[in-house]
């Protein structure tokens, strides 16, 4: 935990690592930046004229505010690495597939349905959701079950803020998230034998934890498609696959909902899947992790219980046998 006054810097003002690497060659960097900016502006104009309703919002700047829940003291993973090393199996099973293929995802217009145990079913357009609460900069560690990790400056607000608008019934004990699925769009989804759409879920108290982030952007801009545009969930103390991407349905349910990887291999991926260095994955140890974007001899570090967020979340699992409920 950071002690003392946290820095009042929105992530949009933090120099991305890739830019920092180029700092030595400032002239080239400036020239590139100017050129990129000019091209981007021009492209944006053209797109507005051609197809005004569908201007892709990926890469659009978001107005953000500081959040005390942001993680400090970590070096951010570069934008390039966050957007080119993805598990998004609807767009292919290799890490670089989603960056190549996710452009096919139609992120506008986008509606998120809220259904199940709620006073009345609702539907939110992506613009409704973006305007619901001020967007916060939240740097979180992201620990994949495959033992690699990143540090990502997300943009969003606590999922609990949306839940408050939905009036779930007292019988709602879990929340299920369903991702977008259209096999004509996601032509790569048959590279695996997964049963689509991707489904994930949280217990109600986990969903209401302020760390659980309804996420719209990263690095101060709207999410690129491969990172789960236009809206996803981020649960930083759980393995990455718990954080469902490109959400179209939020369902409040009474019983623990079926979740994709748990269905595929229940001995390997538990429903809870809290980051836990003491419970090994059957095929590898979870004691250490590789921070991506670093040279191989500097990559490895110890994995932290609850991914380092124990102060905020451990109390939810008091008395629970985490070896059994992994």
């Amino acid at each position: 935990m950071h002690i003392g006054k946290p820095p009042d810097i929105p992530s949009s003002e933090i120099t991305p690592q890739s830019a920092y690497r180029q700092f030595m060659n400032r002239r080239r960097f400036l020239r590139n930046a100017l050129a990129t900016g000019a091209v981007a502006l021009a492209a944006d104009r053209v797109a507005q004229v051609i197809e005004p309703g569908r201007v892709a919002l990926a890469g659009t700047k978001l107005q953000t505010v500081y959040s005390p829940l942001t993680t400090t003291g970590e070096q951010l993973t570069s934008y390039e690495d966050i957007t080119h090393y993805n598990n998004f199996y609807e767009f292919g099973v290799e890490k670089d597939d989603p960056a190549k293929n996710a452009g096919a995802l139609p992120t506008r217009p986008w509606t998120v349905k809220v259904e199940g145990k709620v006073a009345k079913p609702l539907a939110f357009s992506i613009d409704d959701l973006l305007k619901l609460r001020p967007l916060e900069d939240r740097v979180y560690r992201m620990r994949c079950v495959e033992a690699w990790s990143m540090v990502i400056p997300w943009v969003g607000y606590s999922f609990s803020e949306l839940v408050k608008q939905c009036n779930p019934l007292p019988s709602a004990k879990y929340v299920q998230f369903l991702s977008y699925y259209d096999r004509h769009v996601e032509k790569w989804s048959d590279e695996s034998t997964i049963y689509w759409p991707y489904s994930e879920g949280l217990r109600m108290d986990e969903a209401m934890n302020p760390l659980t982030l309804l996420t719209f952007g990263l690095y101060g801009e709207t999410l690129p498609n491969q990172d789960g545009a236009p809206v996803r969930i981020v649960v930083p103390w759980k393995y990455g696959f718990k954080s469902a991407k490109s959400i179209v349905t939020i369902r409040f349910v009474e019983k623990q909902p079926p979740t994709t990887w748990n269905d595929m291999a229940p001995n390997e991926y538990g429903f809870y899947s809290n980051v836990n260095p003491n419970v090994d994955h059957p095929r590898w140890s979870q004691k250490r992790e590789r921070r991506v974007g670093l040279p191989f001899y500097e990559q490895w570090r110890a994995t932290l219980m609850f991914n380092g967020y124990g102060d905020q979340v451990a109390s939810m699992y008091q008395g629970m046998n985490l070896h059994r409920y992994y």
Binding site: D81, W148, R290, F296
Partner: peptide, 15 residues
Amino acid sequence: GAFTNHLGIDQTATI
């Protein structure tokens, strides 16, 4: 790749 830092995003995995 090891000398020029071009071993991809997750270098250990690449190796």
